[in-house]
Simulated assay, not measured.
Amino acid sequence: MTDTPRRRGRRPGAPDTRDAILAAARESFARDGFDKTSVRAIAEAAGVDAALVHHYFGTKRKLFIAAVEIPVDPEQVLSGLMAVEVEDLGRQLILTIVGLWDGDAGPAAVALVKANLSAPDPAMLRSFLTEIVLAAIGERLTSGDHVALRTSLTASQLLGVLVSRHILKLDPIATMPLADLADMVGPTLQRYLTGQLS
């Protein structure tokens, strides 16, 4: 009697289960957004127990990050932004977000934005921006007035800089040192966040 060699690695079917969860998550997040999507609903759509979703991905936010295929961990980005004073958020946004695009994550970030902007409904990118990044920034605004408008204006300016620098490669924005760019654009972002809007 010969011993059957033991299978190594993941158990059979595990990649299919993970892929089914991701597919259900992408559909749910695109349709309902981050806040209105529950782990239980994703599990039901994937035909698995909710415990398996937590087993593979941990939290709903980590599942969202995996579903969107964001090339950076938003938690690291947000922790850097949360560490500065509110009065310095405008400049820090440029240093942090544009700095990421200038680094190793840049090509993947450009590909992600191009794919979402050319989609019929860029719901995933919109949900990531509004319900994760901008919502966290909005919570820090103490003025309490027009938070949605302030964060939307900030996003429009920031995306304009990113597209000009990395997709259109519009000089001198494309080749300007990051610190200089932060000095020039940061005050505009800061006005959107904490200054007078009219």
Rank of each mutant, 00 (worst) to 15 (best):
V68Q: 03
D180F: 05
V72I: 13
K62S: 11
I21R: 09
D102K: 12
G99F: 04
L100I: 06
E87W: 03
L193K: 03
R91T: 13
R40H: 10
I65A: 09
L162Q: 04
V98H: 03
V86N: 02
D88N: 11
T142N: 15
R61W: 02
R6A: 12
L193F: 15
A111E: 15
G80W: 01
L162E: 00
M82D: 12
A108M: 08
E44K: 12
L63V: 06
A67T: 03
V110R: 01
I137W: 06
A111R: 10
S164E: 10
D183N: 07
Q157F: 07
I94Q: 01
T96R: 09
D145C: 12
R11S: 12
P177D: 08
L52T: 10
G144D: 03
L22R: 07
L168G: 03
G90M: 02
L93W: 06
R11N: 09
A45V: 02
T96Q: 10
H146E: 15
A111W: 00
G160A: 00
T17I: 14
L22A: 07
R18K: 15
P122R: 00
E75A: 11
F29L: 03
F29P: 05
K60A: 04
A123K: 04
E139S: 13
G90Q: 05
V86D: 06
V161Q: 02
L153V: 11
Q157G: 12
T175H: 12
T188E: 08
S198Q: 14
D104L: 12
S198I: 15
V163T: 06
K60Q: 07
L125K: 01
V113S: 06
E85L: 08
L197Q: 14
R150E: 12
A105H: 10
R6M: 10
L153W: 12
V48D: 00
L189F: 08
Q196P: 13
P120C: 06
F29C: 04
T175L: 05
L159A: 09
G186Y: 00
A111L: 05
S127M: 05
